[in-house]
């Protein structure tokens, strides 16, 4: 595929244009990748400061006691969105629900291994382990296995 980069002056005018004969899964992947690069959200860090978080840096979102947190490699941010909103909003950016309270980033997932009775353990790239519940295991597995290369 031919790739060309054109320099422009205004940051607000930056864009990626994909010219293709038809929208294949590969093109969809490029689109999702390009969109995720600019995507970000705001969250309150442990020190109480509002900070901008790049979506690609988030390992997983977790809901605890009505609050929602975005977990990056080392930091945890409280965010204002609800977990179901996050699940829906970032579905195209490889985020998938893995249990009632966690939405994980497939791009930060190292591997999975079987746990007891239909559950799986998600080994994140930062060494954290998350539970993939029986209910959501087919969703997580289907999300990756149905991708066409």
């Amino acid at each position: 595929m031919k790739v060309s980069i054109r320099n422009i002056d205004a940051l607000s005018e930056e864009q990626v244009v994909i010219e293709c004969v038809r929208v294949t899964p590969e093109i969809e992947e490029i689109r999702a990748f390009a969109q995720s690069k600019g995507q970000g959200l705001s969250g309150v860090s442990g020190s109480g400061q509002m900070e901008r978080i790049a979506l690609e840096d988030v390992y997983y979102f977790e809901a605890v006691d009505e609050k929602c947190f975005a977990c990056t490699e080392k930091q945890v941010y409280e965010i204002r969105q609800r977990l179901y909103e996050i699940e829906k909003a970032y579905e195209d950016y490889y985020f998938v629900r893995c249990s009632k309270s966690v939405v994980l980033n497939l791009m930060k997932l190292g591997s999975i291994s079987p746990a007891l009775a239909g559950r799986y353990t998600a080994h994140m790239q930062n060494g954290e382990k998350l539970v993939i519940s029986r209910k959501y295991a087919p969703v997580v597995i289907g999300r990756v296995m149905n991708q066409e290369g």
């Binding site: 497939l106 997932l109 999975i112 079987p114 990756v144």
Partner: peptide
């Protein structure tokens, strides 16, 4: 077996 296939695809 499913986990191994998943890990390859991932």
């Amino acid at each position: 077996r499913i986990a191994n296939a998943f890990n390859r695809e991932l």
